[in-house]
Nucleic acid binder design. Structure first.
Lengths: 124, 124
DNA sequence: GCTGTATATAACCATAAGGTTATCTAACTG
DNA sequence: CAGTTAGATAACCTTATGGTTATATACAGC
């Protein structure tokens, strides 16, 4: 029998965030929003891209919770929402010891202690 | 004339990293590798996924520089390479002030100082 | 109410991504 | 050498992604 073909939607929030960040245009938009809210027109200005193109990027950012769009008259001013970025750094934090020199020295030190214990014998 | 259709390859390293992280399976693989090197078989064990499936994920992680694969006999032991993760946290760092309470207080304080300066007048 | 502006939506297209099965290569093991 | 094991590669399918143009909507100003 043919294997079940899983529909590929229903992405978890962290994956959605990473996916949203995996595009230079979208990261540039976030960078722009870091200096304050902006309308869609203002956001699209720097890019050689059609309006709907930018609109789609905004949808992606919004679904990932990285921006929020209000409405005043015919404008939809965008604001940065940084909580998902916090989640990203918190996800990465446990890996810090793999690149951070001082963390590595700490690791080595702890390892050294463990070895010593082993050789000396000890009770729980 | 028809608009030029840009070929969509040639992704920048940071985008490649984010894209690689935008998948729970790949993040799980990294988590596993955080506790030490592992063979492909060991890595695929937790997943209800075919061998080639895992192999593809490893390609993605490797292209993003997040793992390196050696070879001993018929095994290709994988090791974690964390430098791209460092790049990720460094990218996110400037946004910290948007979620970090104490940074926000600092911001407000600095703003307060600036205001005071303005009102009192000062020389460079 | 008409016109222009800001933005979203729809329909479409090409390519990438994530999965599968089937096949190939390389190394150990008897 | 035959068989098994580890893994990669190829070919294929489906859905997602990133872009386009064309069209619709909502509001502001005359």
């Amino acid at each position: 029998m043919k294997a079940a073909r899983r529909t590929h939607s229903a992405t978890d929030p962290l994956s959605a965030t990473f996916a949203a960040l995996a595009d230079p245009t979208r990261r540039a938009i976030l960078a722009r929003l870091a200096s304050g809210p902006a309308t869609v027109k203002e956001l699209s200005a720097p890019f050689p891209m059609s309006g709907p193109g930018v609109s789609k990027h905004l949808r992606v950012l919004e679904r990932a919770g990285l921006i929020r769009q209000g409405r005043q008259a015919q404008w939809r001013p965008c604001r940065l929402e940084a909580t998902p970025l916090k989640d990203v750094t918190e996800w990465a934090e446990p890996y810090r010891r793999f690149w951070d020199e001082s963390f590595q020295r700490l690791d080595t030190y702890v390892q050294h202690l463990k070895e010593k214990e082993k050789h000396h014998g000890h009770r729980a």
